[in-house]
């Protein structure tokens, strides 16, 4: 009986801790992915502004060079553009918003900025593209700072909360 109780308690503790870790990790994931996204956008900027490489090829290069956790997005967009002959590159970005939210833990404001990249990409000359890239990169840096603050505040809290709630339930049940 005691063994059963011990096992049950352990199970509760493990599950609540995991839930806590899951929520806590979302904050650090968001920050990490924002940093990877910034790197990818910088690579895309180099390809476009300095190399004048056509968009589909530039996106493939970013996919190859960047951190695959985020850079896979650029390959998805490229394939979508080529397969569907979309009217606007923005539609291909828009199609990925669920992945951005659910898989990469981006918040709505992050997604908005990434989508705004889709609106301007390839629509103007190199000089103008350069300016747009700078604008978007600046916004991403601000978001990174905000994400860092949030992570510092919430990550530990959620993780400890998971463990503590688990312990509390175990104590109450016992």
């Amino acid at each position: 009986m005691i063994i059963m109780k011990f096992l049950g308690g352990l199970l509760v503790l493990i599950s609540t801790s995991l839930i806590g870790f899951f929520y806590g990790n979302q904050y650090s994931n968001r920050l990490n992915n924002l940093v990877y996204m910034e790197q990818c956008i910088k690579m895309l900027e180099t390809e476009i502004v300095y190399g004048a490489v056509p968009l589909p090829e530039a996106m493939l290069n970013v996919y190859k060079k960047g951190n695959k956790k985020v850079s896979f997005l650029f390959k998805e967009i490229r394939d979508h553009i080529i397969e569907n002959k979309v009217e606007e590159v923005y539609y291909s970005f828009y199609d990925l918003r669920h992945i951005l939210k659910n898989d990469l833990n981006f918040k709505q404001q992050d997604i908005e900025i990434i989508l705004s990249l889709g609106r301007v990409l390839g629509t103007s000359n190199r000089e103008d593209q350069g300016k747009n890239f700078q604008l978007i990169l600046n916004q991403i840096i601000i978001l990174e700072k905000e994400a860092k603050l949030e992570r510092d505040k919430n990550e530990k809290m959620f993780k400890s909360l998971g463990v503590l709630v688990g312990l509390a339930i175990v104590i109450i049940l016992i």
Binding site: A52, L55, P56, E87, G122, T123
Partner: peptide, 19 residues
């Protein structure tokens, strides 16, 4: 619309590359 779409395909969505 036809012209805009065709031009996008021709320029490979990359006006900057064909300045």
């Amino acid at each position: 619309e036809n012209i805009i779409k065709t031009f996008k395909l021709i320029s490979n969505y990359s006006i900057y590359a064909f300045e």
